[in-house]
């Protein structure tokens, strides 16, 4: 019930941003869209599925992810039809399936997905900061450059977030050791 409330809160926040996203691609792509995905993740937080559905659901999530990464769909998401498609597909076809499949994904596959997310953010950052043309017709060139820099910052932040536990964290399974230092691990 609490999670349902949080999911509702995230989607309400996303809808509340619907006027802000017209001017700011950062708020559109890096705040509103992730909030919608988060709403889906929270919605399915305590649900479980059988293992054989993990890969198909992951593929659904990846497809929807790639679909909304296309610059033309970012423009489309500002039209009435596109807006509805965005509100429905990001939570239900990206957040929910991602959350449901995640527990079944092995460490190698998770690492692969994370590494790809980082490199893709880097490529997007480069594209949006260096493109000689406007990539989205709905946004100013300056806003496009800001979005490119935001992609870089996000890549750096996520890179640290994911790398630090691997490099300096306690190996899982030995969380509580004799020194009692497990609780201070990053």
């Amino acid at each position: 019930m609490k999670l349902l409330g949080l999911a509702f809160l995230a989607s309400a926040e996303a809808v509340a941003l619907r006027y802000a996203v017209v001017e700011s691609p950062i708020q559109h792509v890096l705040v509103q869209m992730p909030l919608l995905v988060l709403a889906g993740v929270l919605l399915a937080w305590n649900r479980q599925i059988r293992q054989e559905w993990a890969v198909p659901l992951l593929l659904v999530a990846l497809t929807v992810f790639l679909f909304w990464m296309l610059p033309r769909n970012v423009d489309w998401a500002l039209t009435p039809t596109g807006e509805i498609a965005k509100y429905l597909s990001l939570p239900l076809l990206l957040g929910v399936p991602l959350r449901l499949s995640w527990p079944w994904l092995g460490p190698v596959l998770r690492g692969f997905l994370k590494a790809n997310a980082l490199s893709m953010l880097g490529v997007l950052g480069f594209l949006y900061t260096h493109a000689p043309v406007r990539i989205c017709n709905s946004y100013l060139v300056s806003a496009q450059k800001d979005l490119g820099m935001a992609f870089f910052y996000l890549a750096a932040g996520l890179g640290c977030l994911w790398a630090i536990p691997i490099l300096f964290g306690n190996p899982s399974g030995q969380r509580s050791n004799a020194t009692g230092c497990a609780s201070c691990g990053v």
């Binding site: 890969v55 198909p56 593929l59 497809t63 296309l70 610059p71 033309r72 406007r134 989205c136 017709n137």
Partner: peptide, 27 residues
Amino acid sequence: PSVLIASIGLGTLWHATDGGQAFTSEA
């Protein structure tokens, strides 16, 4: 099921980019 969904997914993306030709609304 995975193969089926992968095909539908690729088909969707193919369609959404006009056969890999248009990634921006200008194109």
